[in-house]
Every structure is written in structure tokens, then in C-alpha cells.
Design a protein around this nucleic acid. Structure first.
Lengths: 186, 186
DNA sequence: TTGATTATTTATCATTTGTAAAGTGTTTTG
DNA sequence: CAAAACACTTTACAAATGATAAATAATCAA
């Protein structure tokens, strides 16, 4: 499986651990705009994007805000719920026809006891996510919207395909502002 | 040691693991404004504040920006360096007379092989930090500066003691703006 | 294809925030 | 104590962003 190469590139686990992991992995398909996880639910699944794309979103004062984008080989997880067990006000939505690998988190966490190397693999995976979140924090804290937009263009080839409204809230600005930035009049 | 109670509250480890952990823990004292870790260095130490307070900061266009505050029992770590091995443009500074517990990260990571429970303890500790970072991201992404300031007042009793300039950059605004917000004229 | 819906841009005006500079108050230190 | 350094506020003006509405452009579905 393609996915196991991705895992191997982070940390090589034993073949027994691989077999155990395969047993709790499912492939799931979604159509464009499908809600993969609803707002208000608890996160009990770790998703890895195989193809397509997805976003984490929530509502603030009735406005749809995109917190996170995920493309091929990216993890997508509502960590604030996964790691606390509490429900989250965030949801997950497919932005395209999307194939996900879904790992049941309860089974995964149980496996940590038996397979130290699975715990380590996922520790390393989530550490990477943590570092990405810190980078994003930096960018939101003291870069201008224009800087953030240009950074995003450089980082992500897929930006072309993402609706402007999603990008705008991701950058912490309105659609109108982003439109101005793109036009060079902002 | 006080610290071990803190650890116990997160995840109980075996007494052998505790002994091993104690061997790589050092207590360190700093005076107000001391630089604990310089900008440009690599993060090879996990600090836990025993008393006093500290901040993570960096320079953006010559301006001093505070990214993180830490008080008693808080972790303080430049995670983007700790988890990648790369140097970071961030530093750590004591904001008060401060006592830290310092854990050498290289020794700690080595211990993960031998003591599964130490790896788990620190996995859980860093997961908590990750969740905190996500909360902070939310707040920077779509709350107003005024909301962020009021949230901070509620969250943190220690705010009174922190210089305004540090708080302002932490909130992603200028001192002048924060002054306006406090005056109710902003 | 056509009409309907959705996405994006543009324009106008209000609000927020930034910049710079000056002023006030407080702490530090010789 | 007095001078200096530091912390915070205020003012005035400029720039960035938001809100609303209207105008295009692109996409989707019958």
C-alpha cells in the first residue's frame, strides 16, 4: 500500500506492527463538498489524504472559517478533540472528489501499548503537525495579509483549485480583502 | 520533587523511569531579563517553569515579538527546533527571577527507547502543548484584538505583571493599539 | 444551451490598526 | 535627591481591512 511508504519515510515499524496497523485502516471515498466529520462531533478518526483535498472549518458569528487545508499525503485531524476526547466545534469537508485513509483512533491508541513503534511513528507524525501549526501561528501573528497570501502561494501548488472564500478565511481576512490583494490594489 | 507530581498528574511512570528521568534533570536559576536561550540556537533543552515566568520571542523587522508566555508548571520549549533539529530564530527570556527545571532533550529522546513510559509521558505533554497552540491559532485567526485581550485577561492571572509591550506583540498588535483597547477608545 | 446559482471583483464608506511623535508617569541608579 | 531610563498613554494622521452592495464572471444543473 502507498500509505505504508509514507509511514516508512517517517519511521520504520516492524512487519507485525504493520499488519496490526493495516487491520484498523480503512479506505473511504467522498464526493466534492461532502461533510466528512460534522461540527460538534468528537474526533475519533485520523485521516490521511490519498487523493483529492479537504479542509477543517468552523463557524464564527455565522461565517464559515477554514482553519486547515490538506492535500495528498497530508494528515487531517481535529487534534484539539483527538487529544482531549472533548467534542469540537470544527468539521471536516472534502473540497474535491477525495479518497481518504481512515484510522480509528481508539484502536490506534490501544495499539500504542502493544506496539511501542506504532506509538513512536504517530508521535513523530503529530510532532510534524505541531511544528506546522507553530509556523502558521507565526504567520498569523505578525505577517501582513499580503505576506501570508504570497507565502501560501509558494507553499502550496494546489491553491489554484481552492475557492477564494476558503483561502480568505484561512488567511484571517475577508474575501474582499483577498480580492484586493490579488488585484494589487490592497 | 514537586515536578514529579506534575508528571504524575499527566501519566504515571515506573519508579525506575522516574530515577532515570531524575538523572537528566537539572534545576537552573535566572535573573529577571536573563536570556535563557539565544536567538539562532538549536533547542536541546526542555524547560519547565518552577517559579517565575518566561517568554519565547523573536525579531521581525527589528521588532521584538513575544510568541509564548510560560508560568509555574508550564513547559517552555522551541518546538519547531526541538522536533526538527534545526536552529530557530526564537529565543527564551526570563521575565522575572525564575527557577527552571531543565531536561536535556538528547538524553531524553535516547531514554524513549529504553523507557516506553517516558516516551508516553512526554508524548502526552507535547500533545497538550499542541492543543494549546491550536487554541491560540484560532484566536489569532478570527478574533478581534479586543476579544483576544479579554480572553488573555481571563486565562492568565499573571498578566498584571507582564509588560504591556510583550502582551501587545503576543496579541499580534502594537502597544499603541493595546493602549487604546485598554482605554476603551479602540 | 439557458437560466440559476455560485464565485470573484469592484466601488464606496466606516472602522480598525499602524506610525510617529509628544507627553505623562514610574522605576532605576548614580 | 535628580537625572536617566523605561513604561504607558495620547494625539494626529496614514494605511489596511471590514461591511455592504452592485457588477461581472464562472460553474452547474435542468
Amino acid at each position: 500500500m502507498e500509505l505504508l511508504n509514507f509511514f516508512d519515510s517517517i519511521y520504520k515499524i516492524s512487519s507485525e506492527a504493520k499488519k496490526a496497523l493495516e487491520r484498523i485502516i480503512q479506505e473511504k471515498s467522498y464526493a466534492k463538498n461532502d461533510i466528512i466529520q460534522h461540527i460538534g462531533s468528537s474526533c475519533r478518526t485520523v485521516y490521511i489524504v490519498q487523493s483529492g483535498s479537504a479542509r477543517i472549518f468552523y463557524l464564527k458569528d455565522g461565517n464559515d472559517i477554514t482553519e486547515h487545508f490538506a492535500f495528498a499525503n497530508d494528515l487531517i485531524v481535529r487534534a484539539e478533540s483527538l487529544f482531549t476526547g472533548k467534542p469540537t466545534s470544527k468539521g471536516i469537508q472534502a473540497m474535491d472528489k477525495t479518497i481518504m485513509v481512515a484510522i480509528d483512533s481508539e484502536s490506534l491508541f490501544k495499539m500504542y501499548d502493544q506496539y511501542h513503534d506504532i506509538e513512536r511513528l504517530f508521535r513523530l507524525i503529530f510532532e510534524r503537525e505541531y511544528v506546522n501549526t507553530i509556523k502558521r501561528l507565526e504567520s498569523l501573528q505578525f505577517k501582513t495579509a499580503t505576506e501570508r497570501y504570497h507565502d501560501l502561494l509558494v507553499e502550496t501548488d494546489f491553491i489554484q483549485k481552492i475557492p477564494l472564500k476558503y483561502i480568505a478565511s484561512y488567511l484571517g481576512i475577508t474575501q474582499v480583502s483577498l480580492s484586493r490583494i490579488r488585484a494589487g490594489t490592497g
